[in-house]
Each structure stands twice: as structure tokens, then as C-alpha cells.
Amino acid sequence: MSQPNDPFSGLSAFLAAAQTGGFTAAAARLGVSPAAVSQAVKALEARLGTPLFIRTTRRVGLTEAGAALFARAAPAAAEMAAAIEAAGAMGKEPSGLLRLTVPHMAVPLIIEPTLGILRRTHPKVAVEIAVEDATVDLTARGFDAGIRIGEYIEPGMVAVRLTRDIFWSVVASPDYLAEHDRPRQPEDLTSHEAIRYRFPSSGTIYRWEFERDGKTLSVDPRGSVIVNDGALLISSARAGLGLAYVADIAVETELATGTLIRVLEPFLPKTPGLFLYFPQRAQTQPKLRAFIDLARQVLRP
């Protein structure tokens, strides 16, 4: 129980509410009542002499003081939690909640083959998986680790390879190609309909990248369909709505069955594949090590 002069009193409630965007969600994460979270935050605000949250009927948001506190306290709290867990984990069975953020692409490739095995072999490890394609601040969102394409991992993170390199592909359905001339050069895209992808985090639309004679060429094709979800991008291509620029590992089944066909192959680049990434302080956590070891074993082929 926290003492009146404890500088950390109410901090866990504050961090949970800031990360989840509400007292109810924070209470569920901490295993207490929403009233207990609200009371702890109010006591912290009273002690600091400034409000930390802007409260509305739908959610709570951080004030300027709350945002400043969260920016400094969240990384420190994560470091302390990792240190405590590492100290108490020597020789112990992996346990606790493993929180992962993964893109849609990783669900069939990595999560589905490993999740059931992880739960059977390490029943004390609970798993929470957030599927989102946007770039995520692991510490701010309270995740233990994430999975992303290698080139999009922020600097300073430990990265563990999970898949082979990615060969990018421009694909279309047989029906689309039956109605349109097959593009032979990147410049031919001006006469085609493209399904365009908008990055969820930055809001920018992805420019298609090609290589020719050792030089990089980027094209911003026209298109009447814009999505911010990789799965919808692929299904739209299958439906014949246009050409799509995708990672080959995300459409292996479609390419093998012929429901999608590659074009412009000589001009497409290769990039690093999918990696599990996490802060260096987290690599000693038994629950994370258990997932890494299992993923390497299951995904080795």
C-alpha cells in the first residue's frame, strides 16, 4: 500500500489511464475498479497541484502537464518494471501478460502458427495482440514488443528476424489484366488504375518504388481507391479494382493459386523481412524470450 509521502503513489493509475485513454480501460488492465483509478489520479493531481487529464463524457485526454509527466514517467516506469521482472525471473517459468503490436501481414505468417503452441507450452503466459499497420511507440502504448518490416523499425531497438527478405510486387487479378494492357515499364502505370495505400500514422500516400539500371525510381500512380489497411489492399486487388503494390510474403497463396498475377517484376526491389523488435531492457523477460525461441523454432523453414 502506498504511503502519503510515496512519490510513486497514483503513478501506475495515471500511466494506465494515459495509455488506454480512459479510467475504465485502465481499471481493467490494473485489475481494480474505475473508481479506484479515478481516486488515485485525483489524489496525484491534488498532490501535484495541477490537473493531469481533461475529462469528457467519452474519454480522457492529457493536459499539458499530464503529457509532460507521461513523456518522462512512461519510459522510466517501463525500465523499472523490466528490471523488477528480470530480477525475479531467474530460473522461473515464463509468466505474465505478453503484449504485442503486429501488422495485418504478420497474423497468418507469424501469429497464427505460433500462438496456439505458445499457450500450450507456456500456459502461464497470457497474450494480448493488437493488430494495426501504423507505427507504434512501444513504451507509450505499454507493449512488450512489436513486429514490423525491418526498414520501419525505429533506431535503438533490438531486432530479431522472423521471415525471409521481402520481394515487393505489383499484382492484379486475371480479370483486371484481361481488360487492360499489361504494364511493361513503370511509366505504363499512368494508363492504369492503382489501389493506393495511405500510411495510418503519417497520413501520406505511399509512392511505389522501383529499381532500374541501379537507380531508384518512385511513382505516384493515379487511382480511385485509397486504403490504410494491408488486408483490404489485397482483397481489393483480388476483386479486380486495380493494381496493388504489396509484399510478396503477404500474397504467397494468391500468387500460387493464380488469383493474383505479378507484373513489372524486373523493376521491383527487395527489402528486409518481418522482425520482432523491442527495447534492449526487455530482452531478459522470460515471457518474451519464450516467444522468441518458439517463433524461431516454428518459423525456421
Rank of each mutant, 00 (worst) to 15 (best):
Met1Asp: 07
Pro4Met: 02
Pro7Trp: 06
Pro7Val: 06
Phe8Asn: 10
Gly10Tyr: 08
Leu11Phe: 10
Ser12Trp: 01
Ala13Asn: 11
Phe14Ala: 00
Ala17His: 03
Ala18Glu: 04
Ala18Asn: 01
Thr20Tyr: 01
Thr24Arg: 06
Leu30Glu: 05
Leu30Cys: 05
Gly31Pro: 03
Pro34Thr: 05
Ser38Lys: 13
Ser38Tyr: 05
Lys42Trp: 03
Leu44Asp: 11
Ala46Arg: 10
Arg47Leu: 07
Leu48Tyr: 10
Leu48Ser: 13
Gly49His: 08
Thr50His: 08
Leu52Met: 12
Phe53Asp: 13
Phe53Lys: 12
Ile54Trp: 04
Thr56Cys: 06
Gly61Asn: 07
Thr63Pro: 15
Ala65Phe: 07
Gly66Gln: 09
Ala68Ser: 06
Phe70Ile: 07
Ala74Cys: 07
Met80Glu: 14
Met80Phe: 01
Met80Ile: 03
Ile84Ser: 13
Ile84Glu: 14
Glu85Asp: 06
Glu85Cys: 10
Glu85Thr: 05
Ala86Thr: 02
Met90Val: 15
Gly91Val: 13
Gly91Gln: 10
Gly91Asn: 02
Gly96Arg: 01
Leu98Met: 05
Arg99Cys: 04
Arg99Ile: 03
His104Ala: 15
His104Met: 04
His104Glu: 10
Met105Glu: 15
Met105Phe: 05
Pro113Met: 03
Leu115Phe: 03
Gly116Met: 12
Ile117Asn: 08
Arg119Glu: 14
Arg119His: 02
Arg120Pro: 04
Thr121Asp: 05
Thr121Trp: 01
Leu138Ile: 06
Arg141Asn: 11
Arg141Leu: 14
Gly142Gln: 12
Gly142Arg: 12
Asp144Trp: 13
Ile149Ser: 11
Tyr152Pro: 13
Pro155Ile: 15
Gly156Gln: 08
Ala159Thr: 08
Val160Asp: 00
Leu162Met: 05
Asp165Gln: 11
Ser169Leu: 12
Val171Asp: 06
Ala172Thr: 00
Pro174Gln: 07
Tyr176Trp: 00
Tyr176Asp: 14
Leu177Cys: 04
Glu179Met: 14
Glu179Asp: 14
His180Arg: 04
Pro183Ile: 11
Glu187Asn: 10
Glu187Cys: 07
Glu187Phe: 12
Arg198Met: 15
Thr204Trp: 03
Thr204Asn: 14
Ile205Ser: 02
Trp208Gln: 13
Glu209Ser: 08
Glu211Tyr: 09
Glu211Ala: 15
Arg212Tyr: 05
Leu217Cys: 09
Leu217Phe: 09
Leu217His: 10
Asp220Glu: 09
Arg222Ile: 12
Gly223Asn: 02
Val225His: 08
Val225Tyr: 04
Ile226Met: 06
Ile226Gln: 11
Asp229His: 04
Asp229Cys: 01
Asp229Tyr: 00
Ile234Phe: 13
Ile234Gly: 00
Asp248His: 09
Ala250Ser: 14
Ala250Arg: 14
Val251Glu: 00
Val251Ala: 02
Thr253Gly: 08
Thr253Asp: 09
Leu255Trp: 08
Thr257Phe: 03
Lys270Asn: 04
Gly273Leu: 00
Phe275Arg: 09
Leu276Cys: 11
Leu276Gly: 05
Tyr277Ala: 13
Phe278Cys: 04
Pro279Asn: 13
Pro279Trp: 02
Gln280Lys: 10
Arg281His: 10
Lys287Arg: 09
Lys287Gln: 06
Leu288Gln: 15
Arg289Gly: 12
Ile292Leu: 15
Leu294Ile: 01
Gln297Trp: 11
Val298Glu: 00
